[in-house]
Design a protein around this nucleic acid. Sequence first.
DNA 1: GGTTTTTTATACCAAATGGTTGAAAGAGAT
DNA 2: ATCTCTTTCAACCATTTGGTATAAAAAACC
Lengths: 208, 208
Amino acid sequence: MADDPPRTRIQQKNRAAILDAALDVFSQHGFRGATLDQIAGAAGLSKPNVLYYFPSKEAIHEALVHGLIDIWVQPLHDLDPSGDPVEEILAYVGRKLDMSRQMPRESRLFANEIVQGAPRFGAEITGRFKDLVDEKAAVIRGWAEAGRINPLDPYHLIFSIWATTQHYADFDVQVRGILAPVGDAHFDDAARFLAALYRAALTPPGVR
Amino acid sequence: MADDPPRTRIQQKNRAAILDAALDVFSQHGFRGATLDQIAGAAGLSKPNVLYYFPSKEAIHEALVHGLIDIWVQPLHDLDPSGDPVEEILAYVGRKLDMSRQMPRESRLFANEIVQGAPRFGAEITGRFKDLVDEKAAVIRGWAEAGRINPLDPYHLIFSIWATTQHYADFDVQVRGILAPVGDAHFDDAARFLAALYRAALTPPGVR
DNA sequence: GGTTTTTTATACCAAATGGTTGAAAGAGAT
DNA sequence: ATCTCTTTCAACCATTTGGTATAAAAAACC
């Protein structure tokens, strides 16, 4: 199911160019809205040449998603059960927000997929994805039961972190339409806001 | 620019059927991914008949968005500057979450638009939309300066409320994939979680 | 250089898609 | 019943789109 690494330099370069172009196009138009001509154009290749490297449009999309999922869940994966609870969760929020800042196209690629019902992605959600969330939710629940953070539903806490951080990538045009920021500056404000929000909500009374 | 109300009963019924069908299809596939045949099929009409009521696919989408935008911003509009700050904001969160529960298709319609860069919607964001947000952000800032809520950036607070509440509509498949809820039950948990989150973050030290 | 393999793109195809035509069926008014 | 206006849809059209066929150009190998 996984592709072997490309043999030649040309293959490596062109596959990468196609995947990068496809990330642009798929993240902006969704799977059905994207066309092979757009992808080929953005990659600087002809359409048949694109289909020389990937058997179909679907295959390009799958290769993209497949190659990104590990990176995508890494921030949650890195949540350390042995760390300080509040700081660990705040650090997780920070990592997720950084991803929205550095990889907005990737975020929108997943957003497009999931908003439209994850027709090409559903299996991953109930698979590895769910397992990781279950594992980390258990960690957070443990912290809550030990009184080290306020007792909040860990699943909805994780959802809220996904929502608030990915919002800055997925709804970028809306955020920019309202804030009219210069460049990326508003991400720093967002980081401060989210840190304050979650610190206030998580810090238990005793420590305050 | 606004359409006059349809004259005959048939017009009223069919226009409504088309818009309802279009809401289904557009919210699930995005504008470019949706086809007139799908819409016609879902509305129980032939494609030419659909185009008898609306001049184009674009016009259907515009009529939909146009007809929904007022409903969509109503919850924020109803934030009462003379009410109790914390309770007002919590009530706003509650109204937004209710909309995600009752109108998930509408939420996904907007989500699709905005994720893809709002090509058919951009003007609204920097127009009426921004004005309303500016107005309510000023109210919230006033509350913060008066020490009636914790000092949080009002714009990012509003973004976080949009993100956390709309998440349950826009990312419904993901939420369901992870929680495997029975029906709508998880919305009650979400309501409790969000109330706790924002109450903890907003309530100023003095009142605690 | 010559041979083989890989890479590239023009020309093409079938299906899908947004939209039109035109004529028949239906509703409403008198 | 008849006349008029509205509604409906089969057939059609032009364009777009995912994907092929094929043959030339370019690397790679000897």
